[in-house]
């Protein structure tokens, strides 16, 4: 087991290195020049060249890559080209916002989705299942911006219960912070819960048709026992991977929701930085997103392995 974990960690590290190269090459290929954009169209070629030299952009690409990689491993992400702030400072605030939102969403939606998915799987083919599935598939197919906009329309404009913009200012009370996060949280919970519940229903529903479930029922096991004792441990492997993918999505892929609510998260920071050609920030965000994907999937694989009785053939059981 420990060998497996070490192997996975090493593989994850190598993968991250490869990704860093891809990110760097990708940023190199972006059209446009930071110095040119910062100084505007009318800047003289001398001024542009001087700024390029100041920003270190005149060095050859491999040197810049290695310098960046070296810095990254030391926590030095460079300096933002537009705000002239250290990237790490810009990131830390955004990262904590994103992690709070993603964490809260996960805490609410994962148990909720598992419960809904399992209830539907147990009642497969009944009216409850049909209605539930229609609602879930409908929500899966609804774009996030629609859910978010409807939320704003109802709760902010008509009822005036919640702020339409969830700009979190440091220093305000916890209650205000939670209140301002409630709409984005609800939007993302709805989307993620629907996705997860649909997959849970499929995975658990499939397990419930297995002969060993029939055996358990014919031993007199009730529906709760069948699910908790027999089905769930076989569902952990596939489900944990789906959950990991969804959490990774919550960290990196919620740019639309962040934009609608003006939520200061990582995804929006990256989108803004791409527009401004602020490459150090783009690269840092991309690395964090990649690392979160790799890390979460690695954790999922390890958990799935822990639940698999077939680990290491020949090992004493």
């Amino acid at each position: 087991m420990i060998r497996f974990i070490v192997k996975r960690l090493a593989a994850g590290f190598v993968l991250l290195l490869v990704i860093s190269l891809l990110i760097f090459v990708g940023c190199e290929m972006l059209p446009g020049d930071v110095a040119q954009i910062m100084l505007g169209q009318s800047a003289s070629p001398e001024n542009v060249a001087a700024l390029r030299a100041e920003l270190g952009l005149d060095r050859p690409a491999p040197v810049r890559y290695l310098a960046w990689l070296w810095g990254t491993f030391h926590g030095d992400w460079g300096v933002s080209m537009t705000s002239r702030q250290p990237v790490s400072v810009m990131l830390s605030e955004r990262l904590s916002n994103t992690l709070t939102l993603a964490g809260l969403t996960t805490l609410v939606s994962v148990p909720l989705a598992l419960l809904i998915g399992m209830v539907l799987a147990v009642h497969k083919g009944t009216r409850l299942d049909r209605v539930g599935t229609i609602v879930i598939v409908g929500l899966c197919a609804t774009p996030e911006f629609l859910v978010a906009t409807l939320g704003v329309l109802v709760f902010s404009i008509h009822l005036r219960w919640l702020p339409a913009i969830s700009y979190v200012t440091p220093g305000t009370g916890v209650l205000t912070q939670i209140k301002s996060m409630l709409l984005p949280l609800a939007t993302m919970t709805i989307i993620v819960t629907a996705q997860l519940a649909r997959m849970t229903r499929a995975v658990v529903g499939n397990i419930l048709t297995q002969p060993y479930v029939e055996t358990a029922r014919l031993k007199g096991a009730g529906p709760v026992r069948v699910i908790m004792v027999h089905a769930l441990r076989n569902a952990v492997g596939p489900l944990i991977n789906i959950i990991a993918m969804n959490v990774a999505y919550l960290i990196s892929g919620v740019v639309i929701v962040e934009t609608i609510f003006a939520f200061p998260g990582l995804a929006r920071l990256m989108a803004d930085s791409v527009q401004a050609r602020d490459l150090p920030v783009v690269q840092a965000c991309a690395m964090i997103f990649s690392a979160s994907y790799i890390g979460l999937i690695m954790v999922a694989d390890i958990v799935a392995k822990l639940f698999d009785s077939r680990k290491e053939p020949g090992a004493p059981s």
Partner: peptide, 21 residues
């Protein structure tokens, strides 16, 4: 079931839960 009426399945290979001793 299991107490008064018990069942022996055709294929034990698929009729045992693979993850339980």
């Amino acid at each position: 079931r299991g107490r008064k009426l018990a069942y022996i399945a055709q294929s034990a290979a698929v009729s045992f839960n693979p993850r339980i001793r």
